[in-house]
Simulated assay, not measured.
Amino acid sequence: MARPVTVVTGGSRGIGAATCLRLAADGHDVVIGYVRDGDAAEAVAEGVRKDGARCAVVRVDTSVEAEVEGLFDAAERELGAVTGLVNNAAVTGPFGRLADAGTADLRRVVEVNLLGTLLCSRRAARLMAARGSGAIVNVSSAAATLGSPGEYVHYAATKAAVDALTVGLAKELGPDGVRVNAVAPGVIDTEIHATMGDPGRAERVGHTTPLGRAGRPEEIAAAIAWLLSPEASYTTGTVLRVSGGR
């Protein structure tokens, strides 16, 4: 049987990197989309190839239509028909209250987290529906229902939109044999917290969950891998919360 070919956006770090490695171990060939750190993306690609998987590395800003089209063109040219998509690329913007947020930061969060997910999903839908099969997994956030007041309500709002997209697109593509689901992580121990200006956030907030700790990227990757797998063949339109009970 042909190996699945899965595109992972934001695949150079954190949840995206863990997902690429997990999918390679599960028998996928992987396309790693990244926007800035080419060295990190190549390091992930090396790990993917060590598991015997083929890998392509493509620089892409998912908020730019032409670059998204180039990502999928490269995927199909280098590895073959795309069977899966993980919409993981996202940004939070600076940590703080909405009243203090700059318009450019708000616009970037919406363009990457929502428009980028829409653009990637649209291209995947065109490819997969024509072939009668495929799976899309969106990386949402528990923030979509918690709201994240005082932290990043703008980010939470875009993730709530991703949840709506997941439900609607699943209904739209189900008759075409394409499944669409999402994973909603809680606080996960990645560098995203330092990037937004609060490096100790994962440990601090993790202690407030019923499980008493932050999650690990590998735990989210496991959920994503399951949703892409044949074991989840009757699962679509689902937002799977992996948040330590929060």
Score class of each variant (00 low, 15 high):
residue 41 A to C: 12
residue 4 P to D: 05
residue 39 D to H: 14
residue 117 T to H: 03
residue 220 I to Q: 02
residue 44 V to W: 12
residue 70 G to R: 11
residue 54 R to S: 14
residue 1 M to H: 10
residue 221 A to K: 00
residue 16 G to Q: 10
residue 235 T to Q: 06
residue 132 G to Y: 08
residue 188 I to Y: 01
residue 232 A to E: 02
residue 181 N to S: 15
residue 119 L to T: 05
residue 46 E to W: 06
residue 238 T to N: 05
residue 201 R to C: 02
residue 130 A to S: 13
residue 89 A to M: 08
residue 25 A to S: 11
residue 90 A to L: 07
residue 188 I to W: 00
residue 44 V to M: 09
residue 166 T to C: 13
residue 193 H to F: 11
residue 106 L to H: 03
residue 45 A to G: 15
residue 58 V to K: 07
residue 216 R to C: 01
residue 191 E to K: 13
residue 119 L to A: 06
residue 180 V to D: 00
residue 158 T to N: 08
residue 6 T to Y: 05
residue 77 R to G: 04
residue 222 A to L: 03
residue 181 N to E: 06
residue 129 A to V: 04
residue 133 S to G: 13
residue 159 K to E: 06
residue 70 G to N: 11
residue 222 A to P: 01
residue 55 C to N: 06
residue 141 S to A: 14
residue 3 R to T: 07
residue 92 T to S: 14
residue 216 R to L: 14
residue 98 L to I: 12
residue 200 G to A: 12
residue 67 E to H: 12
residue 117 T to Y: 02
residue 163 D to S: 09
residue 193 H to W: 15
residue 184 A to F: 02
residue 215 G to R: 07
residue 49 R to Y: 10
residue 86 V to D: 02
residue 71 L to P: 09
residue 207 H to L: 12
residue 246 R to Q: 13
residue 215 G to I: 04
residue 97 R to Q: 09
residue 84 G to T: 04
residue 93 G to Y: 04
residue 173 L to C: 03
residue 67 E to T: 12
residue 170 A to R: 11
residue 192 I to A: 10
residue 83 T to C: 03
residue 178 V to Y: 01
residue 83 T to K: 05
residue 148 S to V: 10
residue 222 A to D: 09
residue 206 G to C: 11
residue 147 G to W: 13
residue 164 A to G: 15
residue 2 A to G: 05
residue 242 V to H: 00
residue 140 S to M: 04
residue 218 E to K: 00
residue 181 N to K: 05
residue 28 H to G: 05
residue 144 A to K: 01
residue 28 H to I: 06
residue 171 K to M: 12
residue 8 V to L: 06
residue 117 T to R: 00
residue 209 T to Y: 15
residue 40 A to R: 11
residue 7 V to Q: 08
residue 146 L to T: 14
residue 220 I to L: 05
residue 135 A to F: 00
residue 78 E to N: 10
residue 67 E to D: 14
residue 92 T to P: 01
residue 42 E to L: 15
residue 56 A to V: 07
residue 216 R to I: 02
residue 33 G to E: 06
residue 203 E to Q: 11
residue 192 I to P: 02
residue 180 V to K: 00
residue 33 G to R: 12
residue 156 A to M: 11
residue 12 S to V: 07
residue 172 E to M: 03
residue 96 G to R: 08
residue 138 N to H: 13
residue 224 I to K: 01
residue 27 G to N: 11
residue 112 V to Q: 02
residue 243 S to W: 02
residue 5 V to M: 08
residue 77 R to C: 03
residue 246 R to Y: 14
residue 39 D to N: 15
residue 36 R to Q: 13
residue 173 L to K: 02
residue 58 V to E: 10
residue 123 R to K: 07
residue 47 G to R: 04
residue 50 K to Q: 15
residue 143 A to Q: 07
residue 233 S to G: 05
residue 78 E to K: 09
residue 67 E to Q: 15
residue 210 P to H: 09
residue 242 V to P: 00
residue 243 S to D: 15
residue 164 A to S: 15
residue 143 A to P: 03
residue 222 A to I: 03
residue 146 L to V: 11
residue 134 G to Q: 08
residue 123 R to I: 13
residue 42 E to A: 15
residue 64 V to C: 10
residue 188 I to D: 01
residue 8 V to F: 05
residue 203 E to K: 11
